[in-house]
Design a protein around this nucleic acid. Structure first.
Length: 949
DNA sequence: CAGCGATGT
């Protein structure tokens, strides 16, 4: 058994033993379409490689034993640990005596259950209604899969390194590096297809690539392409200057971009920032020599502001396209245009996805697919909530006109080409779109209606067979297998009413029946749920039988202080301890925890949904999609065969939506549209959206921008809008900042906006009563009667006044998350540069001892700042309703609004408030509130609205 | 009277 993850091992080494074992069950060779027939040779090589690996591992084992015998304590401890684990496995693996004991344990636990502290009972009842006591732990009701274990191939590959590991240094010794890395690289599935892939890219300009975890696609493909003839920098007719020479690989997340760059630089044996580099916000290591650049999608969009043709690049690789973030979707839309437009013949586009569901993407990337003619799907125009009707009507008319025009053009084109198939295609597309819209518009509740029953991913043929390449119209489609261990999937035999309770039972069942090593990863919806389950587990773990391993419960969510997050990646304190990680869906994509072999999936997640007609977000517990479920399942099979326990029935799984609704269909589109316009895309209706947003969402966004004076009546970008688009902020925030420039409170406003945009949780949040009270007490010193905005200003000011060396302690003292504060500081620094604030105070320099003087914000300044906020947030205002004592929105239909309990104004009664965000969770909560006056609102509101106030 | 899924410029 080599599968114990070694503490602090280089992440890439985790594959060592996986490799050998996997290749045993999988033939090293397979047929590939369009690949030169050199198979036998390659096969031999593969076998030799395999043997080499096995030998290496055997050698290492021998080496360990030798070292241990020679008195190397570390190695001896390691071997001892392994031996113990093996024993343990033997001990727990089978036999009926244990079974009886197990049952006894269960009864004990059950009895104990009834004595669960009242507090917990209450909490869970709140979320789950009744609390059924099942007979025994969940296992009695966990079904064995009817078939053999299924291979799970859905994965995203580049998150091998834990997100929060700050290791900047390469953990591999340079001496080992070249040989180890080369053989590692060559053993990656993609390596066998190098020549075929290269040919693909010579033949076609667009390649869609499917590759699951561990295929090596993100790291290897750029290296394959580097010396291709089409990479050469050259002159192209119709474009000024030379074109090409670089490869860009876009990622949805910063960590992924930086980590991949680091790895590729290591593999290529170059210094990071020279031939291989990266570029993310606040951090870039790239220069004139850089040929391969990893960047975030958002960063590429930013580069498009300066050069819409992306002349620097010969190839853009869009990685993780299946995640369908707004930015990825936008990048794909722009690239589609470029590759068949201005950059035709001089740009290669590769779209990489981890899921098989690439048909839509492939069609989208095809030339002449009608996408450019596509109109925004008809959204259901529900009754709009009052407001500025004139504005809305004008906009609606404009959009309608554009739509009609597009429709006509589309029709003409249709008839030009194959009329039959075009129409059919179109109809299908419409239908699909409609269903997306239905889904979007369907009322969301805690248990939403399943959209349309679809065939479970798992029942489809898996990607076990030959890797394949297909030419598909103007694009090439390529599949590379991943490297993933099989995961047994278990479903609940009947619907689960309380998934927290069910998770608890399943955890202990696994703990009692499964040998170590094998940590458990539980997917839950939020912090509160995680905290309460943690308490429950710890309660039960107190009287664990001595024969079973210890338990270590670790929460994992984004708002957790970094130190706490790090604990997830540390090895358990003793070898005889099982880690139980309770995570939000952060562990689904962003963070990879090693050592996990058991996944418990509640099938739920909190999903944000923007409601254009109401102009507010909902953050509700919703069912995940099949692809999310598969992603979660895959987390059990990264290092060894694993097991996944789904706390819902197989039927429920089948009824889940196949894929998560793309973010662009769920989000507030104001910023998206502003960015489109700023990148020269005036006619948003004709932009090739992979998933065209519903019309009412587009309208709401246009209306918002019009209200912020970012657009004029014709829908064209104003100078103000242009300025706004240059700021890395939401449109209302950008508007506020530009207003502040005129009002000469720009420094103060930057402080507030940085604090708001840095995160939504500046304070450390604890459920612990005592700690919370202490925190509240400490935070009192920042409280201002004006409300939250000025309080944030006071906090930022106070922080600025602290000497850099003492800031960490200061954060701790004030229960402020230091990572959040660091982020706020980065934003503040950037905004100060962008807004041309002379850095008179040198507090930004860490070396400088100087610090800003602490100066309490004067009421006049506070008022000026708040008035600026109203220019951007005049719609986010509520006035006190004299009769009910509650607040109702000023703009619109006068809907009820409740001040968020986290606000300093909660429970206070003011004439009116401005708030940053309205989120519907259990009630319509207004977050980040400050007191304002009605006449300020009237002053700040745009013309049409002003009249109605 | 009572709460914050995850990203990004």
């Amino acid at each position: 058994m080599l599968s114990t993850p070694r503490p602090q091992a280089a992440p890439s080494l985790l594959f060592d033993d996986g490799l050998t074992r996997f290749s045993k069950s999988k033939p090293a060779e397979s047929t590939t379409l369009g690949e030169p027939p050199k198979k036998s040779n390659r096969q031999l090589k593969a076998e030799a490689k395999k043997r080499a690996w096995e030998e290496r591992i055997a050698k290492r084992e021998a080496e360990r034993t030798r070292k241990a015998e020679a008195g190397d304590n570390e190695e001896a401890a390691f071997l001892e640990k392994k031996r113990k684990l093996a024993e343990q496995r033997k001990l727990m693996g089978s036999g009926s005596p244990e079974k009886n004991e197990k049952q006894e344990q269960q009864h004990k636990k059950q009895k104990k259950r009834k004595e669960v502290p009242e507090e917990h009972q209450r909490k869970r009842q709140k979320t789950a209604g009744e609390l059924p006591l099942l007979n025994g732990f969940f296992p009695t009701s966990v079904q064995s899969p009817k078939q053999k274990p299924k291979n799970v191939t859905q994965e995203t590959p580049q998150k091998l390194e834990p997100k929060f590991t700050p290791s900047q240094s390469d953990p591999i010794h340079p001496k080992q590096r070249s040989s180890a890395l080369l053989s590692q690289r060559q053993s990656l599935p993609i390596w066998a297809h190098q020549s075929a892939l290269r040919q693909c890219l010579i033949d076609r300009d667009v390649l869609v690539m499917v590759g699951a975890t561990g295929s090596g696609k993100s790291t290897q493909l750029p290296q394959f392409m580097l010396n291709e003839p089409w990479m050469a920098r050259r002159t192209v007719p119709g474009i000024d200057g030379k074109v090409g020479g670089c490869i860009a690989i876009t990622q949805p997340r910063r960590v992924a971009a930086t980590n991949l760059a680091r790895r590729v630089a290591t593999e290529a044996g170059v210094k990071l920032g020279e031939e291989v580099g990266y570029s993310v916000r606040f951090d870039a290591k790239a220069g004139p020599k850089t040929k391969i650049k990893f960047l975030t999608d958002g960063m590429l969009l930013q580069e498009m502001l300066r050069d819409p043709l992306l002349r620097k690049y010969s190839c853009i690789v869009v990685d993780e396209a299946h995640e369908r973030t707004v930015d990825t979707d936008l990048v794909m839309g722009f690239l589609r245009r470029l590759v068949y437009g201005e950059r035709k013949g001089s740009l290669k586009v590769v779209v990489m996805s981890a899921t098989m569901e690439v048909e839509g993407m492939s069609k989208f990337m095809e030339e002449n697919n009608g996408q450019d003619l596509d109109v925004a799907a008809e959204g259901e125009d529900a009754a709009e909530e009052g407001g500025d009707i004139e504005m809305k009507e004008a906009l609606a008319a404009a959009v309608e006109e554009a739509l009609a025009k597009e429709d006509e053009e589309a029709k003409e084109k249709e008839e030009e080409t194959h009329p039959e198939s075009r129409k059919e295609k179109r109809r299908k597309k419409k239908k699909k779109k409609q269903s997306q819209i239905d889904m979007l518009l369907a009322p969301r509740s805690a248990t939403p209606e399943p959209v349309s029953p679809v065939v479970a991913e798992e029942t489809k043929p898996q990607d076990d067979g030959p890797e394949s390449m297909a030419l598909y119209g103007s694009i090439a489609l390529f599949q590379v297998p991943g490297r993933q261990f099989p995961v047994d999937v278990y479903h609940a035999p009947e619907p689960v009413t309380d998934y927290v309770d069910s998770a608890l039972r399943t955890i202990f069942q696994i703990h009692y029946s499964e040998p170590l090593p094998g940590d458990i990863l539980v997917f839950l919806t939020g912090q509160e749920e995680i905290d309460s389950l943690q308490k429950l587990i710890e309660e039960y773990a107190k009287d664990l039988d001595k024969t079973v391993p210890r338990i270590l419960v670790l929460p994992l969510y984004a708002a957790l202080p970094p130190k706490e997050q790090q604990r997830v990646f540390l090895p358990a304190p003793t070898p005889n301890t099982r880690k139980i990680i309770l995570s939000t869906n952060i562990a689904e994509t962003s963070v990879t925890v090693s050592g996990v072999r058991h996944v418990i999936d509640t099938g739920k997640a909190k999903i944000k949904q923007f409601r254009p007609n109401l102009g507010l977000d909902s953050l509700l517990v919703s069912e995940i999609s099949q692809s999310s479920a598969l992603q979660r399942t895959g987390r059990a099979g990264r290092e060894a065969p694993g097991k996944c326990y789904r706390l819902y029935t197989e039927e429920s799984f089948k009824a889940l939506a196949q894929a998560t609704v793309p973010e662009i269909l769920r989000a507030d589109l104001a910023q998206t549209i502003l960015r489109l316009k700023a990148r020269g895309c005036d006619d948003i209706v004709s932009f090739p959206f992979l998933s065209p947003p519903p019309r009412n969402a587009l309208l709401a966004a246009l209306e918002q921008l019009l209200g912020l004076a970012a657009l004029d009546d014709t829908g064209a970008l104003t100078q103000l809008g242009k300025d706004m688009s240059l700021l890395p902020l939401l449109p209302p925030q950008a508007r506020v900042l530009l207003a502040a420039k005129n009002a000469e409170v720009v420094e103060e406003t930057i402080d507030v906006i940085s604090a708001l945009s840095g995160t939504d949780s500046i304070f450390v949040f604890t459920t612990d009563e005592e700690q919370r009270e202490a925190a509240m007490e400490k935070q009192k010193e920042f409280l201002r009667q004006e409300g939250d905005h000025i309080m944030l200003l006071e906090i930022v000011r106070a922080y600025a006044a602290v000497r850099p060396g003492e800031r960490r302690q200061w954060c701790k003292d004030h229960f402020i998350n230091p990572r959040t504060m660091a982020n706020i500081w980065d934003v503040r620094k950037q905004l100060r540069v962008l807004m041309d604030v002379s850095s008179s105070a040198p507090e930004d320099d860490e070396e400088e001892e100087g610090s800003e003087s602490v100066e309490v914000v004067s009421p006049d300044t506070a008022q000026a700042v708040l008035k600026c906020f109203l220019t951007g947030y005049y719609r986010n205002t509520a006035k006190l309703d004299g009769r009910t004592g509650g607040y109702v929105t000023v703009v619109g239909a006068g809907n009820d609004v409740v001040i968020h309990p986290g606000s300093s104004l909660t429970g206070k009664k003011r004439e009116a408030v401005v708030f940053q965000e309205l989120v519907w969770t259990t009630r319509p909560y207004a977050r980040w509130c400050s007191a304002v006056q009605m006449d300020w609102i009237a002053d700040a509101a745009p013309g049409v609205l002003k009249r109605s106030l």
